[in-house]
Simulated scan of single mutants.
Amino acid sequence: MFHNTTRTYIINTISHLTLSHTCNNTKVTRSFKKQMMKNRYPLPERRWFVAMAVVGLIATAMFLTNAIRTSETSYLCPGALGIRSKTRTEFSYDASPIQLRAILHYATSRVVPQQSVSEIKISLDVIKSLGRPINFLVFGLGHDSLMWASFNPGGTTVFLEEDPKWVHSILKDAPGLRAHTVRYRTQLRDAKGLLTSYRSEPSCSPTKAYLRGNEACKLALENLPDEVYETEWDLIMIDAPKGYFAEAPGRMAAVFSAAVMARNRKGSGVTHVFLHDVDRKVEKVYAEEFLCRKNLVKGVGRLWHFQIPPSNDTHASRFC
């Protein structure tokens, strides 16, 4: 019963959106029908609940850009039918292509984002509070990437991923995403040693740390694309790289580099940094070392939210 109700709700939601965009987005409508034919079998109840919730969150992001305006409209495409449309004032749901694609994807896919709905909502609430397109950097590319991009229409959303094959796989289904492959110099097995040795390396110190070309500091991501270094990021999400086996890169460098970016911010305001999987020891220890407990403003599930201000302290010996 729940499966059918949920499926009907999502189909009706997307049908309404695609109908209102039929004149200019016939490809979206055709794509929706094709996807529904591929996914005729119901998902497990929990996945459908998450899928519905994600669709709702994306719809919330869409409504942020809605406007009431006077326009010439009709319930069908009047130009195509040769019918003169009526002028009236109504809500205009101007969803961006990335938002429509995201709704279509999560309503018809058998995979859902790894973060819980309550964890996802923290990030969306911050994006809403900023009230403008933002610069959003995400460590990790995966089944939630289309969702993150849809939350930031008109803004810059960039994904960093360590596995080239995985990048190719995701971009095949979502070619509009901006993603770069990252080479990490760390392994999870070295996490404890790196936490000790970085303090003796001047280029890792809180007053001198930098990223681009910083080969001396093993925690610095020194070879990222130029746009990553040249952009001041409003929000940084750390949900990668892999950190659950000894040979994995671990998230040590991602956490350190996010802290350096935030502290070196030149513009006004803070940098919002989100770290996932804080139930794991390395993520928790590195967060407390570089992102700082004093900057922790909220935690839900396995996600911590930090607000990190720019740092002008030229005598600091520790990040925290």
Rank of each mutant, 00 (worst) to 15 (best):
1 M>D: 04
3 H>T: 05
7 R>C: 02
8 T>F: 12
11 I>D: 14
11 I>C: 03
13 T>N: 08
13 T>S: 09
17 L>C: 00
26 T>A: 14
27 K>R: 12
28 V>D: 13
31 S>I: 00
31 S>D: 15
32 F>N: 06
35 Q>D: 14
36 M>I: 11
38 K>Y: 12
41 Y>T: 13
45 E>C: 14
45 E>K: 15
50 V>D: 05
53 A>R: 15
54 V>L: 10
57 L>M: 14
60 T>A: 09
66 N>K: 07
67 A>K: 15
67 A>E: 09
71 S>K: 08
75 Y>I: 13
77 C>M: 04
84 R>K: 08
87 T>I: 07
91 F>C: 03
92 S>F: 07
93 Y>R: 00
93 Y>L: 09
94 D>C: 05
98 I>E: 01
99 Q>E: 08
99 Q>G: 07
105 H>R: 13
108 T>F: 00
112 V>T: 13
112 V>R: 07
113 P>Y: 13
113 P>A: 10
113 P>D: 11
114 Q>N: 09
115 Q>L: 15
115 Q>N: 07
116 S>R: 09
123 S>V: 15
124 L>I: 12
127 I>D: 00
128 K>V: 14
129 S>P: 03
138 V>F: 04
140 G>L: 03
141 L>Y: 01
142 G>E: 07
142 G>I: 11
143 H>E: 10
144 D>F: 12
148 W>F: 15
149 A>R: 15
150 S>Y: 09
151 F>V: 04
152 N>C: 09
152 N>F: 10
152 N>E: 03
153 P>Q: 08
153 P>K: 07
154 G>V: 10
154 G>L: 13
155 G>Y: 12
159 F>V: 05
160 L>W: 04
161 E>S: 11
164 P>S: 06
166 W>D: 04
170 I>H: 02
175 P>A: 06
176 G>P: 00
178 R>G: 00
178 R>F: 06
179 A>S: 12
180 H>N: 04
180 H>M: 00
183 R>K: 13
184 Y>R: 05
185 R>W: 02
187 Q>D: 04
188 L>Y: 01
190 D>C: 06
190 D>V: 02
191 A>E: 10
192 K>S: 10
194 L>Q: 11
196 T>W: 02
196 T>R: 11
199 R>Q: 15
199 R>E: 14
202 P>W: 09
203 S>Y: 03
204 C>P: 04
204 C>M: 06
205 S>D: 05
211 L>T: 03
216 A>C: 01
221 L>H: 06
224 L>T: 03
224 L>F: 08
224 L>M: 11
225 P>R: 12
226 D>C: 00
227 E>H: 09
241 P>R: 09
251 R>A: 07
255 V>H: 01
255 V>G: 02
255 V>C: 05
256 F>V: 10
259 A>N: 07
261 M>T: 00
262 A>I: 05
269 G>Q: 01
270 V>H: 04
274 F>L: 14
275 L>V: 12
281 K>A: 05
282 V>C: 03
284 K>I: 00
284 K>E: 07
285 V>A: 12
289 E>P: 01
289 E>M: 11
291 L>G: 08
291 L>V: 01
293 R>A: 10
294 K>M: 00
298 K>G: 02
299 G>T: 07
303 L>F: 08
303 L>E: 06
304 W>L: 04
305 H>V: 02
307 Q>D: 09
308 I>S: 02
311 S>M: 09
312 N>Y: 12
313 D>T: 01
318 R>V: 13
320 C>V: 10
